[in-house]
Design a protein around this nucleic acid. Structure first.
Length: 265
DNA sequence: ATGGTAGATCCTCTA
C-alpha cells in the first residue's frame, strides 16, 4: 500500500503533472492539498483517467482545498470538525479498504500562519495555533485507534534539519519554537509516529518545499520539510519505504512543494 | 533589512 501526499497548488493548473507523480511513485492513494477548486470544477474525469476510480474532494473558491483519490475503495468519514468554525476546506478523512484491513486516512492542510509569529498582532498566526490546538484535542479522542495514517501540508518544519538553517529560521513562521512545540504536542497526544524520519535520521537534511522566490531553488537549496506522513504506532513495523520526489520541484510549472510517498507492507 | 515568485481572482488576497 503506497500513500502519497502533495501540495499541488492548483489541481486544475497542474493536473498533467499528476501523470509524472503516478509514474514515478506508483501510489495506490494520492492526497492533495491546495487544490484551489470548488467541487463543481474539480477535474474528476482527469483523475479517474490516471487510474484512480475512487475520488473525494472538499474544495472552495480560490484558496485551500483537499482531495483524496485511490485505486482501492474508501468511504468518506462523516462528522469531521469545522476547524476553528471557519468553514475552510482543510481536512478530508476516509476509511480505506486496504489489504490487511481498513486504514483510517486523514489529509490535512494546516494554515500557513502569515509572516509575523505573534498571535496578538497576526490573526493568521493565531488561527494556525488555534487550529493545531483543536487538532490535538481531536486526535486525543482517537489516539488508541489502530491503523491510522495522517498526511498533508502541516506548514511546520519541526526538526533542526527540517530546514536549511535552524538558526536563521527560528523567527520565521514554520520553524518558530511555539509552532514546533504545538506540532510535537499534537504528535505526542495523538500517538502519532513520524514515518518520514523513520527512514531518514534526524541529523540529515530533509526538505519537501522550496520557495518560488529563490532565483535558483536547486543551487541555493534553502528548503523546508513542511509536508508530513504520520502513522499510528501499530503501523510503524509495517513501514516499508519512503520517497521524496525532489525532481518534481524542477518540472515545468512545478508546485513549490514536492510529493512524498510512504509504503506500508 | 529587504524583496524576491506564483496562483486565483471581487486587481488583492493567499502562500
Amino acid at each position: 500500500m503506497r500513500i502519497a501526499t502533495w501540495n499541488i497548488n492548483s489541481v486544475r493548473l497542474r493536473l498533467p503533472l499528476l501523470t509524472g507523480v503516478r509514474d514515478a511513485l506508483a501510489p495506490d492513494v494520492i492526497c492533495l492539498q491546495e487544490t484551489k477548486t470548488p467541487d463543481e470544477f474539480f477535474p474528476l474525469e482527469g483523475i479517474k483517467a490516471l487510474g484512480y476510480p475512487h475520488v473525494a474532494m472538499r474544495g472552495m473558491k480560490g484558496y485551500n482545498g483537499v482531495a483524496i483519490f485511490s485505486r482501492h475503495p474508501f468511504t468518506v468519514l462523516p462528522d469531521t470538525p469545522d476547524w476553528c468554525l471557519k468553514g475552510d476546506c482543510r481536512h478530508l478523512g476516509v476509511m480505506l479498504d486496504a489489504p490487511g484491513g481498513p486504514i483510517e486516512l486523514h489529509n490535512f492542510y494546516i494554515p500557513a500562519g502569515g509572516d509575523i509569529p505573534d498571535r496578538l498582532v497576526n490573526v493568521k498566526f493565531a488561527h494556525k495555533l488555534d487550529f493545531l490546538a483543536e487538532a490535538t484535542e481531536w486526535s486525543v479522542a482517537n489516539a488508541a485507534a489502530p491503523r491510522r495514517v495522517l498526511v498533508g501540508d502541516l506548514n511546520i518544519a519541526p526538526l533542526e534539519h527540517d530546514v536549511w538553517s535552524h538558526k536563521e529560521l527560528l523567527k520565521v513562521v514554520s520553524h518558530t519554537p511555539i509552532e514546533v512545540e504545538a506540532l510535537n504536542r499534537w504528535m505526542q497526544k495523538g500517538a502519532w509516529y513520524d514515518a518520514m524520519r523513520h527512514f531518514v535520521p534526524a541529523e540529515e537534511k530533509l526538505y519537501t518545499w522550496w520557495s518560488y522566490r529563490a532565483q535558483d531553488w536547486a543551487a541555493s537549496n534553502r528548503g523546508r520539510r513542511l509536508d508530513h506522513v504520520w502513522v499510528s504506532p501499530d503501523l510503524a513495523p509495517a513501514l516499508k519505504g519512503m520517497q521524496v520526489l525532489r525532481e518534481a520541484r524542477g518540472w515545468e510549472k512545478a508546485s513549490d512543494h514536492v510529493p512524498v510517498m510512504v509504503e506500508l507492507g
